[in-house]
Simulated scan of single mutants.
Amino acid sequence: MQINQEGLDLIKQFEGCKLEAYICPAGIPTIGYGHTQSATMGQVISEVEADALLRKDLKDAEDAVRTLVTVPIDENQFSTLVSFVFNVGAGAFEQSTLLAMLNAYASAETVAAQFMRWNKADGRELPGLTRRRHAEQALFLGKDWRVYLF
């Protein structure tokens, strides 16, 4: 299984795309949809190149979901989890209650509620992360996630 178009669209909406390299808040050169591995200051890429870098960057998140999830999930749930891992990292996902509940066969609604535990940075809620987590909840449950874009 790999990320579907809905999951890809969700990530693109919340990550945003910058075709010219910039320094992210962590002080790292970044380009496209949050790509850092080969970004250099002064670099400019096309939208097609940004999409290719995103697909490449998502491979690690896809691999983490395939490895860590031990129960059957549908395409939207897989894609949601890839978005989540891409944002929080595989290590955080591996240690999460969300994953533990999922692998213990909790209901989809119970698992989806866990996304909201991940809307903070440095202990304070971030509105953008809250919207992203609501969107991820919706996609995980097979609902329209786009209502959380604004």
Rank of each mutant, 00 (worst) to 15 (best):
R146M: 10
A135G: 07
L54Y: 12
P127K: 04
Q114D: 05
L53E: 02
K56G: 14
M116E: 04
L129D: 01
G34T: 02
L8H: 06
Q95Y: 15
A112E: 02
R133D: 07
D74P: 12
I73T: 06
E47A: 12
A92E: 14
V88H: 04
F140D: 02
A50T: 07
G32K: 01
Q13I: 13
A135M: 10
S79I: 12
F150W: 14
L10V: 13
Y148C: 04
R146T: 10
D57W: 00
E62M: 07
G7H: 11
D63C: 06
D60V: 09
R55Q: 15
T36M: 02
D63L: 07
K12W: 14
G34A: 01
N103A: 01
Q13R: 14
L149I: 15
I45D: 09
S107A: 11
D60N: 06
V111K: 04
V71F: 00
G16P: 09
N4F: 09
L58V: 03
E49Q: 14
V88N: 06
S83V: 11
P127D: 06
E125N: 09
R55K: 15
E109I: 11
D51N: 13
F86N: 02
V44Q: 15
K18S: 13
G32D: 02
K120M: 11
Y22I: 11
A92N: 15
K59A: 13
